[in-house]
C-alpha cells in the first residue's frame, strides 16, 4: 500500500509543474502633449490553453491635485484636475484557445457601464516581416496587423517559449514584447516576466450585463456625446442647437475608434 502511494506521488510530483506564466505590461496613451499610464498583467496557462489580460484604469486619471513635474515653459502652470468620477476597475480580455471563445469585460468611464462580451476568437491576420531588433537580451521580429480600427506593429520573440500578447495582440508564434499603432496614441511594453509563477487555473471573467461588441461601442459613443451636450447646456448663452455633435473629435479608446458617416 505504501509503495503504491509512493508510486502515485512520483508521477504527481513530475506533473506538479507551474503552468501559468505571468507577464507585466505597461500601456502608454499619448494625447497631444500628455501621457497616461495603465498597467496590465497577462497570464498564460499553457496546460489549459487559456490566457487572460487584466488591464488597469489609467493611473494618472485616478487622483487630481498634483503638479506637473515637467512644464512646457517657465510660465506654464499645468496643474490640472482629473474627472470627478471614474471607475477604477480592471478590464479583462480572456481567451480560451481550446474552445475558441473569448470573454471580454469592458466599460466606458463609469463602473455602471460594465459589460461582458462573449465571442469567438478573432485571430488578427498577422503579416510577419523580416525586420528584427534586439529588445533586452532577446531577438524580436516585427509583425503587423489591422486590429480594431488600428494598424498595429509589434515586435515578438519566440526565444522565451511563451506564445501570447497583451490585449488582443494574440496568435503570434511568440511573445509580444512591444507594440505600437498607426495613430501613435497607444503603446504596449513588456516590463516583467514571471515564468511559471503559479499552478492553478485562470478564472473566466463574468458580469451579469451581456451584450455584443458593436452594441457596446454604439452605446458608449452615444452616451459620451450626450454628456458633452449636457456640459455645454450648463453654460449661459450657449445655443445648443448651434453645436454640431458631428464636429466633435472622433471618440476613441483602445478598443475602438468612432466611425462617422
Amino acid at each position: 500500500m505504501k509503495i503504491f502511494f509512493l508510486l502515485l506521488l512520483i508521477p504527481c510530483y513530475c506533473l506538479s509543474q507551474n503552468n501559468i506564466s505571468s507577464l507585466n505590461y505597461e500601456l502608454t496613451r499619448t494625447v497631444e502633449l500628455l501621457t497616461f499610464n495603465a498597467y496590465g498583467v497577462l497570464k498564460v496557462d499553457f496546460k489549459n490553453k487559456t490566457s487572460n489580460f487584466k488591464l488597469s484604469q489609467y493611473v494618472n486619471k485616478l487622483k487630481g491635485g498634483d503638479f506637473v513635474k515637467s512644464s512646457l515653459n517657465e510660465n506654464d502652470s499645468l496643474e490640472v484636475i482629473g474627472p470627478k468620477v471614474i471607475c477604477r476597475d480592471y478590464k479583462f480580455y480572456y481567451n480560451d484557445f481550446k474552445k475558441d471563445s473569448t470573454y471580454t469585460i469592458l466599460y466606458n468611464t463609469y463602473c455602471k457601464n460594465k459589460v461582458l462580451i462573449k465571442d469567438t476568437i478573432n485571430y488578427p491576420k498577422w503579416e510577419i516581416k523580416d525586420e528584427c531588433k534586439k529588445i533586452g537580451k532577446y531577438n524580436a521580429q516585427k509583425a503587423t496587423a489591422f486590429i480594431n480600427d488600428r494598424t498595429w506593429t509589434v515586435y515578438f520573440t519566440n526565444e522565451l517559449g511563451i506564445n501570447g500578447g497583451p490585449w488582443r495582440l494574440i496568435g503570434l508564434p511568440g511573445l509580444v514584447l512591444e507594440a505600437t499603432e498607426n495613430t501613435s496614441t497607444y503603446e504596449f511594453k513588456l516590463t516583467e516576466i514571471n515564468k511559471s509563477s503559479e499552478s492553478s487555473k485562470i478564472i473566466k471573467p463574468y458580469h451579469k450585463n451581456q451584450t455584443t461588441f458593436n452594441e457596446f461601442v454604439e452605446k458608449s459613443i452615444k452616451e459620451s456625446k450626450e454628456r458633452e451636450l449636457f456640459l455645454f447646456s450648463k453654460i449661459p448663452g450657449v445655443i445648443i442647437g448651434e453645436i454640431d455633435i458631428n464636429s466633435f473629435h472622433l471618440f476613441e479608446t483602445l478598443d475602438y475608434i468612432e466611425k462617422r458617416k
Binding site: L34, T35, V80
Partner: peptide
C-alpha cells in the same frame, strides 16, 4: 524555468504626474 523577475525593457517610464488636462481642442 524559474526565470523570475526578468526585466527586459530598460526601465518603466518614470511615472509622469501629468493629470487629465482640461484641454480643449
Amino acid at each position: 524555468n524559474k526565470l523570475d523577475e526578468v526585466i527586459i525593457t530598460a526601465k518603466r517610464k518614470p511615472f509622469k504626474i501629468k493629470k487629465d488636462t482640461v484641454s480643449y481642442n
